[in-house]
Amino acid sequence: MRAAVPFIAAFLLSGLPAAAQLFDPTVTINDKFSERIDIGISTNEIAISSDFSGADITVFGAIDGADELLLATFAYDIVVSLEGPRISTTVRRKERVAGIWINRHSIRFEPIPASYSMSSTRPLEGIAPMMELASRDIGINNIRLVPTGGIGDGSRVAEFREALRRIKQTGGLYQRDPTGVRFISKALFRASVRLPANIPVGLHEVRAVLYKNGEFVMEKVIPLRVVKTGLEQLIFNYAHSYGLAYGVFAVFLAAVTGWLSSLIFRKD
């Protein structure tokens, strides 16, 4: 079931100046500490085929200037996440009206990550106070879900948020692995992050956050583009960019199929 990282690394964008800017890592540092976290991935773009059934990507990293004693006592914690492109999302709720189940209420949320896959050195509760984690959107339950537009009296927002998180999790788009980050030598670590089978295409972010005794030290974000390859994706792109021509072709194909069949099976 789990394919072991069968990626075709594509370096299509690496030669372009705009791409270089796009793929620059961003960092946030707490000046109180001298430790630094660094991560690396082998490519800025991963190409998946249409029959992709999910895989793990491995992110390697190191803590620079780590205190050996603190390392030995597990004082450092790391959370690595892969966040999908942000898309505005609507949640609808069915209700029974005159015996029939119909969509009655809906709440629209400001753009949220289409997918979110998180690995950490231990369960989040043990890493830092929830307030701190929530302020940085770390963890499935801490992803900010801000309703937009009409929300009625607001009393239903909590239910809708919960439903959104539940559906994202059951669909495999949001997932967590509380032991997915492991130290391989003193300050070197590897994190395995799950790519779900239905991973959305677009610009994702690999985000690594370092905590020391529950305090934020540093965050580093590397962009990662996910593209789909193959004939099916070609058809998808064509259908969305040249809808009219695609439709004409679909009709042409149908007409030819019908005409040929009437020739082949002609009875007279």
């Binding site: 099916e232 009219l244 439709g247 679909a250 009709v251 194909l253 019908g258 069949s261 099976f265």
Partner: peptide
């Protein structure tokens, strides 16, 4: 078909063709 393809992007040509081939036979 043409208008659906151009406005809603909902015509699946692979699905349609499989159905047609099996259907005419």
């Amino acid at each position: 078909t043409i208008v659906q393809a151009a406005t809603n992007f909902t015509v699946d040509i692979v699905l349609a063709w499989l159905l047609m081939i099996a259907g005419v036979i």
